[in-house]
Design a binder for these strands. Structure first.
Lengths: 284, 284
DNA sequence: AGCGGCATGTGCGAAAACTCACAATGATTG
DNA sequence: CAATCATTGTGAGTTTTCGCACATGCCGCT
């Protein structure tokens, strides 16, 4: 009798995520279940697949071979999930949308009511995470990204652009001389982002007084008079507690890319949501 | 959360086998389980995948699409099973061998004891069926066939040849004039087999007095004096109750092919069994 | 060095899945 | 046309599987 495919599924998830807990999260089960199913697979194959180490599991040679053989199976499983979504008739069902947090909160979320009015049966699940969701693994059906993705099988389309400017509280700007201005930046994990490098260039020798991974926090800090933050114009312009400062040092802008998997691009449901998203970012 | 792979496995089995019962047999579960898992898959995908008809299930359009998408997944699963077998270390474990019934009974089974003496840890599961087992689906690890297979990924090697001759009981041959001889043949499902066509050519207008799908039955009938049967020489020669008749009309012989999947050909365990099988048929 | 976060292992209770046995239905065959 | 075979459907009982809660252990940070 054949191997249990669920055992394989759990094992592949463990191999990809590295830990029982992470694998359990992606599978929507308890970590104990993952451990049990992997043990079951080891017994069914009579192979030792993992070394139980303290903090994380390590695959044995046999385990690596099995994962390699199982890679195509997982890809096929993802293709099936996409096929299921693509088969959904009409304009009803759940669509997973991934977008950078600020885009999600400021441009999309406020206008979801419009979509719901037009297509009451569409339920959007909006994932506002900085981590780029994998469309291949169907962590999302549609994604908004700030750069063109390079992955296989994905269709990307430039749908908008927005500029960054320096924003601060009006009182702060009035009271503070140019050379004493403080700056608000991303944390160092974003050092490679263009807007971060642009901000640091503008700041020059002047101090960075606050770092946050979250743009909303930076905006709030700027609003309270802590310093200047590089914010998207769609965020800064609409905030009555902030004014735009002409930085003098040129401006920077980023593109917005709409990304969808090839398998889903013709699905009515997905197309409807894509149209809605384009409307959201066109105004930026 | 992702689809349950076991649901997919059961659905694919149902689609391939056509009935709940047959799918349940290949999966080693009860037919109720297959029905329940397919229902679960329908609920998870929110698609109607099968039409419950009286005698057998019929796939809907969505079901067919899903099966098509799942085909690669099943292929990958079979590849994994082969990979598991190929990973087995040393000369121990179970090997599934498929061979035509007579070859299995007469050439292989009597010599299994030799293999067991040489490699005590090898357990052979010998499947003596006329139906050709699929090596791709891992219904068998090694197969002996009477013709070269055309399937992808399989390695075939000619390992022997055996001739057919007419055999009958000595008394029957002495007492019966040539033109009154009766013949013993396969049933009509084997009409395309060369030995069957050869027998009918020899028989000419003379009657076929008995048909059986089983060579052993034909031999037994011939032994009892019912008529002449076309038997492999390795079978007829070793039977003291039968004598070979020079048919005059030329002879016929069939090749024996040893077939193994490419993924398994280098596995020590499989190689050992292959060597044993070659030894079995070389004497034919 | 102490502490917080994250990961794994264990025991138990609850829930779900599976098997078994039997009934019903429809197709095929003599 | 009856009978038989194979399949699907239903209900009951039992096994198994799963999730929760807690304990333990390791790493990184202060």
């Amino acid at each position: 009798m054949p191997l249990d495919w669920t055992d394989l599924q759990h094992f592949v998830a463990l191999a990809r995520e590295g830990t029982l807990s992470a694998a359990a999260r992606t599978l929507g089960v308890d970590h104990v279940t993952v451990a049990r199913r992997v043990a079951a697979l080891e017994q069914a194959t009579r192979l030792k697949l993992v070394d139980r180490r303290a903090r994380a599991y390590a695959l044995t040679d046999d385990g690596r071979r099995l994962v390699q053989a199982a890679g195509p199976m997982e890809q096929a499983a993802f293709a099936i999930e996409r096929s299921v979504v693509a088969s959904r008739p009409g304009l009803g069902g759940e669509v997973l949308v991934s977008a950078p947090p600020t885009l999600a909160n400021r441009l999309i979320a406020p206008r979801l009511v419009e979509l719901r009015r037009q297509h009451p049966a569409i339920a959007i699940k909006l994932i506002g995470e900085k981590r780029i969701a994998s469309l291949n693994r169907r962590e999302a059906d549609i994604a908004l990204r700030l750069s063109r993705p390079k992955e296989q099988g994905l269709i990307a389309r430039k749908v908008g652009r927005f500029g960054f400017s320096l924003y601060g509280a009006p009182d702060y700007l009035k009271e503070t001389p140019q050379h004493e201005l403080g700056f608000i930046a991303y944390d160092s994990s974003m050092d490679t982002a263009p807007q971060q490098q642009w901000l640091k260039m503008i700041a020059g020798p002047r101090p960075i007084v606050f770092q946050s991974s979250d743009l909303e926090s930076q905006a709030a800090a700027a609003r309270s008079g802590l310093g200047l933050a590089a914010l998207p114009d769609f965020l800064g312009q609409s905030d009555p507690g902030l004014v735009r400062l002409d930085s003098g040092g040129g401006n920077i802008s980023r593109e917005i890319w709409l990304v969808v998997h090839r398998d889903l691009r013709r699905t009515p449901l997905v197309r409807a949501v894509m149209g809605f998203l384009i409307g959201c970012v066109a105004s930026a």
